[in-house]
Nucleic acid binder design. Structure first.
Length: 411
RNA sequence: GCGGGCGUAGCUCAGUUGGCAGAGCGCCAGAUUGUGGUUCUGGAUGCCACGGGUUCGAGUCCCGUCGCUCGCCCCA
């Protein structure tokens, strides 16, 4: 039997990797809170229909990437492939459509059955922002501004570009879609096989194709701008103006569309060249129809999701674990006293560890290995004088300190 | 779902035409019984990813499986 390994596409987060991961979440949460977002947590699995109805029956996520299973009562459940659908379901389930706006921050694991590669896992983690309620274009800008601030706070904004587009309202999109179908149908034979299939299912996604053969055809394809209704055009103009007001740099890219069907109006991606094939680091848009599809009233909303693994890979600096104080009794008789001091330090919020095996040399070696800043050495003679030896492990300087002064010396 | 590369010690890796399983780092012990880091001496590393085949003999060649990785596709 081969050795037990983590399941394909999953991994253990230990040490530096978890510190990076947590740093992304904690930074994002802190910034999002300054924008007024509050954290939610919803179940990792949902009724399959929460996703199958709303993400689009023809989307790749629904067709071939969901972890769906039947439980013992015969119900079809699915490990969530993304956060937004679950948040909208929770909004409706909890009657919160009556208390809008809701500003939601989310962080947690998502699941998609895909072939793993750099920055892509079967269990991956996202941070997520949803602003539910406002139909105002400034809401779109604020959501993007929040994302931009998070990228700045993480120190990764430098290499990242915000690209935006509009998918218009339903009327604009229908007109554009008709133009695209006409255009691509005329050139059907030149398209890649994949794009020919998309022509039936989801012609907008041809625009997003990375197939080399499709590129010249896409480059000449109609853009949405001429098909925008006056109100959709005004909305998009409002979003761009909002971004200027928030001071968020962006670039228009008329080829951005979304993989999930519930998006309309604003679509955007924060992209980088620093991650190989996985260049999108944060992406989202407006999804005014989703809450209604979940059984709630028509409710405007806009949001984004970002891959934590991808952000963690871009982090310029790794957060360091706090350097502890090592408490080192010289002999077993001093252990009881060592525990008293250990707990006294911890109650002051100082990270302290007890070195409780081996001779003094072994204990000091271990203090060094765990990266201790100070060693508090407890000896018989000092005990009688009510003091300890305090050693600075960086400089090697050591002095005898009265126990009463110890906390002050370490603060 | 498709294509390329790779799996040898805890880690990074070497291993010649098929002929005793190796190095560095790390780990353990000692030099130093009340003092870490640097140094010196000694020691242990192992299902050579897993399963099968060829061969007197396989880490090495062949087949399959699993995993990792880089692309494609898709997406965050």
């Amino acid at each position: 039997m081969s050795p037990l390994q983590p399941a394909r596409g999953t991994r253990d987060l230990i040490g530096e990797e978890l510190r990076r991961h947590r740093h992304v979440i904690e930074t994002a949460r802190r910034i999002a809170e300054t924008f007024g977002f509050e954290e939610w947590a919803t179940p990792v699995f949902e009724d399959t229909r929460v996703f199958s109805r709303t993400l689009g029956e023809t989307s790749d996520v629904v067709m071939k990437e969901m972890y769906s299973f039947t439980d013992r009562s015969g119900e079809s459940l699915t490990l969530r492939p993304e956060a937004t659908a679950g948040v909208c379901r929770a909004l409706v389930s909890n009657g919160l459509t009556q208390s809008l706006p809701q500003k939601v921050f989310y962080a947690g694991p998502m699941f998609r059955y895909e072939r793993p590669q750099k920055g892509r896992y079967r269990q991956f983690h996202q941070i997520d922002i949803e602003l539910i309620g406002p139909a105002h274009p400034l809401a779109d800008a604020e959501v993007m501004a929040c994302g931009h601030c998070i990228l700045e706070a993480l120190g990764v904004a430098e290499g990242v570009t915000l690209e935006i587009n509009t998918l218009g309202d339903a009327a604009s999109r229908a007109a554009w879609r008709a133009a695209l179908v006409a255009y691509f149908t005329a050139r059907r034979d030149e398209l890649s096989a994949e794009s020919q299939a998309r022509l039936e299912r989801n012609p907008l996604r041809i625009i997003d194709s990375k197939e080399r053969a499709d590129q010249p055809i896409i480059a000449a394809a109609p853009v949405i701008a001429p098909y925008l209704t006056p109100s959709a055009a005004a909305f998009y103009a409002g979003v761009k103006q909002g971004l200027l007001r928030f001071g968020v740099p962006f670039r228009e890219n008329p080829r951005i569309v979304r993989g999930l069907d519930y998006y309309g109006h604003t679509a955007f991606e924060f992209v980088t060249t620093g991650l190989g094939a996985q260049g999108t680091v944060m992406a989202g848009g407006r999804y005014d129809g989703l809450v209604a599809e979940m059984g709630g009233p028509p409710t405007p909303a806009v949001g984004w999701a970002a891959g934590i693994e991808r952000l963690a890979m871009l982090l310029p600096a790794v957060p360091e674990a706090a350097a502890p104080v090592a408490v080192v009794p010289i002999a077993p008789e001093l252990e009881a006293h060592a525990v008293v001091i250990l707990q006294r330090l911890r109650r002051e919020g100082i990270r302290a560890e007890l070195e409780y095996t081996g001779n003094l040399r072994r204990r000091m070696e271990r203090a060094n290995r765990i990266g201790a800043r100070w060693a508090v050495i407890l000896g018989e003679a000092e005990r009688e004088r009510g003091s300890v030896q305090l050693k600075d492990l960086a400089s090697g300087a050591q002095s005898e300190v009265p126990e009463a002064d110890l906390i002050a010396r370490l603060s």
